[in-house]
C-alpha cells in the first residue's frame, strides 16, 4: 500500500558553517495536498526543499519523499518530482525549446512534447526565443513548464510565481490546482501571504529554521488568532485581561478595548463575564497579520508539533 504521506521530515537540521539554517524541521505533507511553506527570506525554505531532492545533505534528521529516502534513491525521487528552483538559472545560449527538449531527454522521454507546447500556450511563452532574450517573468515560465511537463507525482516549487504578472500568477495557480486534481501533491514555498491563502490546503510557517505553526489557512486565520472588540458600560481597567494566557491588549480607550487572542477563547470569555459589557464582536485576523506576529520582534520561536 502506498504511503499516504508525500513528504515527511523529522528533526531536519542543516548548518552552513556557523549558520544554522534548519534547526529541527518536522513536516508531514499528505498526498494530494497543496501545501504552502511560508517564511521570510533566510528562514530555511529553500534549504528544506533542496534537502528533499538530495542536492544538499542534512546534518541530522530523516527525510522521506513519496516513501523514499532521497539519500538512498535520489534518482527515483527525482523521476517522480518536478522542481522549480527559487533562484532559477538557465543556459543562456539555448532557446526555450532546445532547453526543454534537453530536459525532456534527461527525464527519459516520458514527456509528451505536445503537453509542453500546451503549457507554453497557456503561459503565453514563445518557445523559439533564446533564453538570454527572455524577461525574468518569461524565464520563470520556462521554469514552471519544466517542473510540470512530466506530470510529476510531487511538485516542489520554490516561490513559483516570482517575477510573474498577476494574470500569469493566476494561470499558474490554475495549473497547480489542475495538477492536484490529477493526483499530484504540491509543496510550494512563498513569502507572499496572499498566494498561500489563495492556493494552499495547509500551511507551515517557518521561522529561523523551525516550523512554528502548521494548520490550514482557515485554521490559522480563524482559530489561531482573533481580535475581540469590547464595549464596556463604563470605563474599566483591563490589566487583568492581559494576564490571561494568549491575550494581549491591542488598544484600550476607557470604555472600549481591542484584545488580540491566540488559541482558545474560553479563558477570555469567562474573564469578561466579570465586566459590564454593552457590546462584543470578534474578528479573524488575516494570515498576513499572523505572519507578522510570528516574525514580530521578541516573539520566541516555538515548535507547534
Amino acid at each position: 500500500m502506498e504511503e499516504k504521506v508525500a513528504i515527511r521530515t523529522v528533526g531536519l537540521r542543516k548548518s552552513y558553517g556557523p549558520v544554522q539554517a534548519l534547526r529541527g524541521v518536522d513536516l508531514a505533507v499528505g498526498r494530494g495536498e497543496i501545501f504552502g511553506f511560508l517564511g521570510p527570506n533566510g528562514a530555511g525554505k529553500t534549504t528544506t526543499i533542496r534537502c528533499l531532492l538530495d542536492l544538499i545533505r542534512p546534518d541530522a534528521g530523516t527525510i522521506r519523499v513519496l516513501g523514499i529516502d532521497p539519500q538512498v534513491d535520489p534518482v527515483t525521487v527525482r523521476r517522480r518530482t518536478g522542481y522549480l528552483p527559487g533562484e532559477l538559472s538557465l543556459e543562456q545560449n539555448l532557446t526555450a525549446a532546445t532547453l526543454l527538449r534537453y530536459l525532456v531527454e534527461l527525464q527519459g522521454d516520458e514527456v509528451e512534447w505536445s503537453f509542453v507546447q500546451r503549457l507554453a500556450e497557456r503561459l503565453e511563452l514563445n518557445l523559439e526565443r533564446p533564453i538570454k532574450n527572455l524577461s525574468k517573468g518569461n524565464k520563470q515560465k520556462v521554469g514552471v513548464i519544466q517542473a510540470l511537463m512530466a506530470r510529476p507525482t510531487l511538485l516542489l516549487l520554490d516561490e513559483p510565481t516570482a517575477g510573474l504578472d498577476p494574470l500569469m500568477q493566476q494561470e499558474v495557480y490554475r495549473l497547480l490546482r489542475e495538477a492536484r486534481e490529477a493526483g499530484a501533491t504540491v509543496f510550494f514555498s512563498s513569502h507572499i501571504i496572499g498566494e498561500v491563502e489563495a492556493l494552499a490546503d495547509r500551511v507551515a510557517i517557518l521561522r529561523e529554521g523551525v516550523v512554528v505553526e502548521e494548520a490550514t489557512p482557515k485554521q490559522l486565520t480563524q482559530l489561531t488568532m482573533r481580535r475581540v472588540h469590547v464595549h464596556f458600560c463604563r470605563p474599566v481597567d483591563v490589566q487583568g485581561l492581559e494576564r490571561l494566557p494568549g491575550v494581549s491588549v491591542a488598544g484600550h480607550n476607557g470604555e472600549q478595548a481591542t484584545l488580540q487572542v491566540e488559541g482558545k477563547m474560553d479563558g477570555l470569555v469567562k474573564a469578561l463575564a466579570a465586566y459590564p459589557i454593552s457590546d462584543l464582536s470578534t474578528e479573524s485576523v488575516s494570515l498576513e497579520q499572523i505572519f507578522l506576529t510570528y516574525y514580530g520582534a521578541g516573539k520566541p520561536a516555538q515548535e507547534v508539533d
Binding site: 533542496r50 531532492l53 542536492l55 535520489p74 534518482v75 527515483t76 527525482r78 523521476r79 518530482t81 522542481y83 528552483p85 533562484e87 532559477l88 538559472s89 538557465l90 543556459e91 530536459l103 534527461l106 527525464q107 527519459g108 521554469g143 519544466q146
Partner: peptide
C-alpha cells in the same frame, strides 16, 4: 556557480 547544476540534478540522472 551559475546555478544551472541545481536544476539539472533534480532530473532523474545520478
Amino acid at each position: 556557480e551559475k546555478g544551472i547544476l541545481d536544476l539539472v540534478l533534480t532530473y532523474p540522472i545520478s
